[in-house]
Write a protein that binds this DNA or RNA. Sequence first.
DNA 1: CACGGAAAAA
DNA 2: TTTTTCCGTG
Length: 156
Amino acid sequence: VLSTCVPLEVPQSGLAFPDWAYKAESSPGSRQIQLWHFILELLQKEEFRHVIAWQQGEYGEFVIKDPDEVARLWGRRKSKPQMNYDKLSRALRYYYNKRILHKTKGKRFTYKFNFSKLIFVNYPLWDVPPSGQIRAPLFQALQTGGNSPCPEELAV
DNA sequence: CACGGAAAAA
DNA sequence: TTTTTCCGTG
């Protein structure tokens, strides 16, 4: 699909997440959008680059550049005008135990996705879609938990 | 700011 | 069950 083994400078502009990577099914009662889904959504659009963006270097790591704005957007989506970063961040912290996210200690407003968890959440066990549908870099990141650069054992 | 307990809301 | 709200602690 793509070139060979593209290193980790991937989390940038063009690379969009394959929709299956974050199509939450295990949602609350109905099919309400989940926060991590929303975050991924913003991260995917360039118009929000100044509000929230991927951090160069660590795959899956992102920085909330404008906490108030992200909270406002989230609140608008959920019809919660009183949403703020304090409350939004509490929701993010609930993801720690679920292993969807974790905090990058020392770095303000910086969190990191655990992509291997996301793929697990959406694709139980070994039910992985054919690699032909995935962008190589992301696929590798997902397969390796989002940290290892250029794994060669992927050809399995 | 970041964390996590509690309880309420959805 | 996930998220919202509130809040004491470090």
